[in-house]
């Protein structure tokens, strides 16, 4: 099963390789990993998407907690969270295809952030499904380059408090 782990870590050099090394050294899976500073510049936030059975996830969480430099680990999987990913897609756009690309961009509430006589570069934000959907629709036009940020996630606040 896929799990979304959200970590607070010390913002020091070597932290990413400590965490990544923990996964590779024990044969745990990383599907994606992203890291950036938080409001407190001495702390970074890491989102890791991983998978495994309950025992593996228990070990991963314990090992992360044990890692010096990891301040806090939360597993979002059983909670109500919002997940977002950014994709930048450079797509061929000539003649009639320019119209088609624009149309798809609008349907997905994406943005064209760069254009040349033969291409558009589209920025889209959403969960994995949405990104896959737009990629599938754009594919017939000819995708020249696709860059994805990997997901980041945040917990939803309880509504009826």
């Amino acid at each position: 099963m896929t799990h979304i782990l959200s970590l607070l870590v010390e913002n020091k050099f070597g932290v990413l390789s400590r965490v990544a090394g923990l996964f590779s050294g024990r044969g745990f899976n990383i599907e994606s990993i992203s890291i950036a500073p938080t409001l407190d510049p001495s702390v970074s936030q890491m989102t890791i998407i991983t998978s495994g059975d309950d025992r593996v996830i228990e070990q991963i969480t314990k090992q992360l907690n044990k890692t010096i430099d990891v301040i806090k680990v939360s597993d979002f999987s059983d909670q109500d969270y919002i997940l977002r990913e950014v994709a930048l897609i450079k797509v061929s756009a000539r003649g009639a295809d320019r119209e088609e690309a624009l149309r798809i961009t609008n349907i997905f509430r994406a943005k064209i952030i760069d254009s040349s006589p033969t291409t558009y570069t589209i920025e889209v934000t959403g969960d994995e499904k949405k990104i896959e959907a737009i990629v599938n629709l754009l594919r017939p036009l000819g995708i020249k380059e696709l860059v994805r940020s990997g997901p980041i996630a945040i917990l939803r606040e309880e509504k009826n408090k």
């Binding site: 025992r55 228990e58 070990q59 314990k62 090992q63 907690n65 044990k66």
Partner: peptide, 8 residues
Amino acid sequence: IDPTSIRK
């Protein structure tokens, strides 16, 4: 003392 040792 090490939680990772438990249920490994």
